[in-house]
C-alpha cells in the first residue's frame, strides 16, 4: 500500500514553520515523516531525541524529521529504502514543507508520474498557509501566491490574531471566490490530530466525505478575481470518458501553466458510480470512483481555476470536443 504524501506550502514568512513546530511537540505526528529543507530552519534542536542518519532525526513523538539535501525523488526513495532496512521506524504518511517560493505543481508531478515513486507514494493533500496580515500585498506582487492558493485542498489562515475580524472575513471571502473547493480554517484551530492536516483527501479512506467538502455544487456567484477566474462546467448527460481524456490531456499539455487547479465529479457513461478527477497545472491524479453521489445529485461538474485563459474559449472547446454542456455557469 502506498504512503500518502501531503504538501505544506505557503508564501515566505506565512507561518508554515511556526505551525509545524507547534504540531511537532504533540504526539499525533508519531507515525509521520516530516521533510524539510534544513533542520536549522524549523528549530527542533530542543526536541531532538537522536540522530538516526546524517540527514534524519527522531523526535520524542516518534516523528522522523528529514532534510531534503538533493532532489525530492532521491529523498523519498531513500526514505523507503531505510524503512525497508529497519533504519527508520515505520511511518504512515509524509509531510513536505516547501520553500515559500515553490509552486506545488512540479512537486506533484514528481510524485504522481515518476515510475519509481508511483507505487510507493500517493499524493494526498496540498495544504496552503495564508498569511492574513500580508495576503493582499503578496497576492498583488507575487504570482506564486495565487498558484499556491489555487492549488490548495486546505487553506489555513495564519496570523489571525494580528488583524481584525473584518479583515479575516474579507480574506475568507476572497479565498472562497478564488478556490471554492478548498476547506478553510485558522491555523490556531488546528491541532496535531487534525484531519485537515493528516488526511489523504480523495486518495484516503473516505473520498466521498472529501468530495462533499469541495462545494462543487454551490459555486460562488462572482467568478473573476484579479487575474484568476473560476470556470464551472455542469452537464446532465453522461460523459464520454474517452473524449474527455483526449480533450483534457490536450488542454493540460498546451495550457497547463494557466490552469491552476481542476476538480470535478463526473457522471461517466457506462459507470454506475461517480468518477472524481483533480489536478494541478499539467498534472492530473488518477481518477477515483466514489461509492455514491454526494447529496444524491447525479450530474457532472467541473471547476477550473485559470489564469490568463479565455473562459469563453474553454467552454466552447469543451462543447466542441464533447457535446453541448447543459449548464455553463
Amino acid at each position: 500500500m502506498s504512503i500518502p504524501f501531503n504538501l505544506v506550502t505557503g508564501f515566505l514568512g506565512s507561518g508554515k514553520t511556526t505551525l509545524l513546530k507547534r504540531l511537532l511537540t504533540g504526539e499525533a505526528l508519531g507515525d509521520t515523516v516530516l521533510l524539510v529543507n534544513e533542520f536549522g530552519e524549523i528549530g527542533i534542536d530542543h526536541l531532538l531525541v537522536e540522530e538516526i542518519a546524517p540527514d534524519a532525526v527522531l523526535l520524542p513523538s516518534g516523528c522522523v524529521c528529514c532534510s531534503v539535501r538533493g532532489d525530492l525523488k532521491q529523498a523519498l526513495l531513500e526514505l523507503d529504502a531505510k524503512r525497508a532496512r529497519g533504519e527508520l521506524p515505520a511511518f504512515r504518511r509524509v509531510l513536505l514543507e516547501t520553500t515559500g517560493l515553490a509552486e506545488p505543481a512540479p512537486i506533484l508531478a514528481t510524485v504522481a508520474t515518476d515510475h519509481q515513486l508511483r507505487g510507493r507514494y500517493r499524493f494526498g493533500l496540498i495544504i496552503t498557509v495564508v498569511d492574513a496580515q500580508h495576503a493582499v500585498t503578496q497576492a498583488a506582487l507575487h504570482p506564486e501566491w495565487l498558484a499556491q492558493v489555487a492549488a490548495a485542498d486546505r487553506l489555513l489562515i495564519s496570523k489571525a490574531d494580528v488583524v481584525d475580524a473584518d479583515a479575516i472575513d474579507q480574506l475568507r471571502q476572497r479565498l472562497s471566490r478564488l478556490n471554492p473547493a478548498a476547506v478553510q480554517a485558522l491555523t490556531t484551530e488546528i491541532d496535531d490530530h487534525d484531519a485537515l492536516l493528516l488526511d489523504a483527501g480523495v486518495h484516503g479512506p473516505d473520498p466521498g466525505g472529501e468530495v462533499a467538502q469541495w462545494r462543487l455544487f454551490s459555486p460562488p456567484k462572482a467568478s473573476v478575481h484579479g487575474e484568476a477566474q473560476v470556470c464551472c462546467l455542469e452537464f446532465d448527460r453522461p460523459l464520454d470518458w474517452m473524449l474527455f481524456g483526449v480533450w483534457l490531456s490536450m488542454l493540460l499539455r498546451c495550457h497547463g501553466q494557466r490552469i491552476l487547479r481542476v476538480k470535478g465529479i463526473l457522471d461517466v457513461a457506462g459507470s454506475a458510480s461517480p468518477v472524481v478527477i483533480h489536478g494541478v497545472q499539467h498534472c492530473l491524479h488518477a481518477p477515483v470512483h466514489l461509492a455514491a453521489w454526494p447529496k444524491g445529485e447525479r450530474h457532472s461538474r467541473l471547476v477550473f481555476i485559470v489564469r490568463g485563459l479565455e473562459v469563453a474559449a474553454l467552454r466552447r472547446s469543451f462543447t466542441a470536443f464533447l457535446g453541448r454542456a447543459e449548464h455553463a455557469l
Binding site: 470518458w241 474517452m242 481524456g245 483534457l248 461517466v268 457506462g270 492530473l284
Partner: peptide, 8 residues
C-alpha cells in the same frame, strides 16, 4: 498507463 485510460 495514463489517467484517461478506459475505466472499464
Amino acid at each position: 498507463a495514463h489517467w484517461s485510460d478506459p475505466l472499464g
